[in-house]
């Protein structure tokens, strides 16, 4: 592969080789069987690494209870990224109006009403309400793969509006949660490097909204609450985050009333592999045809 990085070249290469299928909207595309095989093989690899951890496996649809979303403070931090689901709840006369406007190219948003669900804005959110109450002595560990929506349309292929995250969530005493986060940070680096990807880890901040967001980001950095494993995919200077580690301290446990057995407010942390981003990093570094990838990489993914 070329040693220069380019978002346009990567997007064009992925499309040319049929790996992603444009649908007309930036940040939304289909994936072909080769892409999905790589994603599934990487997912299996993560499962093998985590097999002795005793995680509870769960799967949630790509939608979230709006009340959970409202309590989660996502709108306090990232109003620009949210996707709230609206639908039609009118009568026949209003339906006629809707059809006239849609086919006439007129705005029709005001004929829709807010539903009880939103698109899942972060892969860990669906699980927190199920932790409410007192945890077992060793806390809990959950393993999920969830679709996530972010309203950030971009032609840049690694910045998607909808993508999958292999997500682990740990809840328990603070030291347990932080040790677990640190262990996975090492594991994340090891996994990526074993796939021939030049990964490094760094302290990171989320794209909080507005000037207040600068304060939130500075607090997050200062307290080292977020780490990322990054790999150059479209840029050397701004490598792409392929795995993200968040320590929420007591935030979600206060919101959802999660206690340790000794009655203290629990801590939570999560980590997520951006599945499509990992696939794109592999295609970028090893070529668009997995059959030609280096043998050690293939052995990890197709053991």
């Amino acid at each position: 592969m070329a040693t220069t990085y380019s978002a346009t070249d990567l997007y064009d290469g992925l499309v040319k080789h049929g790996l992603i299928i444009p649908v007309g909207v930036p940040g939304i595309f289909g994936r072909n069987a080769v892409f999905e095989d790589v994603l599934a093989r990487f997912d299996d690899y993560v499962s093998r690494v985590a097999k002795d951890d005793g995680a509870e496996k769960m799967l949630f649809p790509p939608t979230l209870d709006r009340k959970v979303f409202e309590r989660s403070e996502f709108l306090d931090s990232f109003p620009q990224l949210a996707g709230s689901i609206f639908s039609f709840a009118g009568n026949e006369r209003q339906h006629a109006e809707l059809r006239t406007r849609v086919h006439g190219g007129q705005p029709w948003a005001d004929l829709q009403v807010m539903t009880d669900v939103v698109l899942t804005p972060a892969a860990c959110y669906p699980v927190y309400p199920s932790f409410t109450g007192t945890l077992p002595e060793n806390g809990r560990l959950v393993d999920m793969q969830n679709w996530v929506f972010r309203h950030e349309p971009s032609p840049e292929p690694t910045r998607m509006q909808a993508f999958r995250v292999r997500e682990f969530v740990r809840v328990g005493k603070p030291e347990v949660v932080v040790d677990w986060r640190n262990m996975w940070l090492e594991r994340g680096l090891t996994i990526m490097r074993s796939l021939g990807l030049p990964a490094k880890s760094e302290v990171a901040a989320d794209p909080f909204f507005g000037r207040g967001g600068k304060m939130l980001a500075s607090a997050q950095l200062e307290q080292q609450l977020k780490f990322e494993v990054t790999i150059p995919v479209i840029s050397e200077e701004k490598p792409t985050a392929v795995c993200s580690f968040n320590w929420h301290q007591e935030k979600f446990s206060k919101i959802f009333d999660i206690k340790t057995p000794d009655g203290e407010t629990a801590n939570t942390a999560c980590l997520g592999f951006g599945m499509e981003r990992v696939c794109m990093a592999l295609f970028r570094h090893h070529g668009y045809d997995p059959k030609t990838w280096p043998a050690p990489v293939r052995e990890k993914l197709w053991p």
């Binding site: 403070e73 306090d76 931090s77 207040g212 967001g213 304060m215 939130l216 607090a219």
Partner: peptide
């Protein structure tokens, strides 16, 4: 942190 934004 969110409260500190409102204070600011």
């Amino acid at each position: 942190s969110h409260a500190s934004v409102n204070v600011m």
